[in-house]
Nucleic acid binder design. Structure first.
Length: 307
DNA sequence: AATTTGCCCAACCGCAGTACG
DNA sequence: TCGTACTGCGGTTGGGCAAAT
């Protein structure tokens, strides 16, 4: 009789040598060795056979998962870089929860890892949105920021030379709009309001477990387009992407208690019209976007509003 | 020092698509 | 064509750990 035991109580399984009961829970070093050695000699695939022939009391699915998420040599460890975070954000806005597809664009990162990463940000966002003061502004402002992001991308794609966001600078008010000046985004009343809102949220949340200022909306960073160099992302290291989990409205209500979030009323209050097709660039200021783009997010937003 | 809370991550589950006999 | 097995994917769970209380 052998006793297989891990720190997880659920994975304590007693079995005799002839016992065929499948093991569950965390993998032991011995199991990792068995699987790794087998795949090194025979290759991947036919996971049920792998499990049997490697002498593992695991399902094929379990073996596959362990290999792909942990044992595979090119699996990258450690925190996601700012570039990776931004790429995930962008790809998620394009593809939604297609984690495996997103993971393909991030060499060495697994879909599980990306999914976990995103989920933690979703949770942060859910709590953020639940905050009474955020309820009337946070989501809408964030959504507008997201739309500006996309507009900037589209504008860059359509006219890269004219849209050199790094080189151009639009004069901005000395306060209120300072968050947006570095990317030449015009400080609309909404953005100024947002800025004020950020300042308010500092005092409201910094002394508790709620989202800190570093997790609140900062369009300066959100609007950073893809394709920027590494050093241009340095600031991102100090800015968690928590707020970027704009899909927070997809969160299951029973889990995140989003019942109280009256988005429809919020939209009405903010005169945010949805959906608006297209992305237009102001003639007088090429860097100012008529800020609504038709996006998947809009579709989801409508779905959310229909809940 | 003890307890609670929140975050992170590994692993499991269920489902859908595909391959194959 | 149908049934079964296998594979891959996205959603979910629960334990470990550190920070907060």
């Amino acid at each position: 009789m052998r006793l297989a035991m891990s720190s997880s109580s659920k994975s304590i399984i007693c079995y005799s040598e002839e016992d065929t009961e499948l093991r569950r829970g965390p993998w032991s070093i011995e199991e990792d060795d068995l699987l790794g050695n087998y795949i090194a000699n025979h290759g991947e695939g036919r996971w049920n056979l792998v499990a049997i022939r490697a002498g593992l009391r695991r399902t094929g699915k379990s073996c596959r998962l362990r290999w792909l998420n942990y044992l595979k040599p090119d699996v990258k460890r450690g925190n996601l870089t700012s570039e990776e975070q931004l790429l995930i954000f962008e790809l998620h806005s394009k593809w939604g929860n297609r984690w495996s597809k997103i993971a393909q664009q991030l060499p060495g990162r697994t879909d599980n890892e990306i999914k976990n990463y995103w989920r933690t940000r979703i949770q942060k966002q859910a709590r953020y949105m639940k905050s009474e003061t955020q309820r009337t502004t946070g989501f809408v402002e964030f959504f507008k920021g997201l739309q500006m992001t996309r507009c900037l991308h589209k504008a860059q794609e359509s006219s890269p030379s004219a849209m050199s966001l790094q080189d151009q600078e639009i004069p901005m008010p000395s306060d209120g709009g300072s968050h947006y000046s570095s990317f030449g985004i015009e400080a609309t009343p909404e953005t100024q309001h947002l800025n004020q809102h950020e300042q308010n949220s500092d005092s409201e949340h910094n002394n508790g477990s709620s989202i800190s200022n570093s997790e609140s909306v900062n369009i300066q960073y959100m609007t950073k387009p893809l394709g920027c160099t590494t050093n241009q992302f340095q600031a991102l290291d100090n800015y968690d992407f928590g707020i970027c989990s704009y899909d927070g409205y997809n969160i299951e209500k029973s889990v995140y208690d989003m019942d109280s979030f009256n988005l429809a009323a919020t939209m009405d209050a903010q005169n945010l019209e949805l959906p608006v097709i297209g992305c237009q660039i102001s003639e007088t200021n090429p860097l100012y976007m008529e800020s609504e783009c038709s996006t998947r997010s809009n579709d989801e937003l409508w779905q959310f509003m229909n809940i």
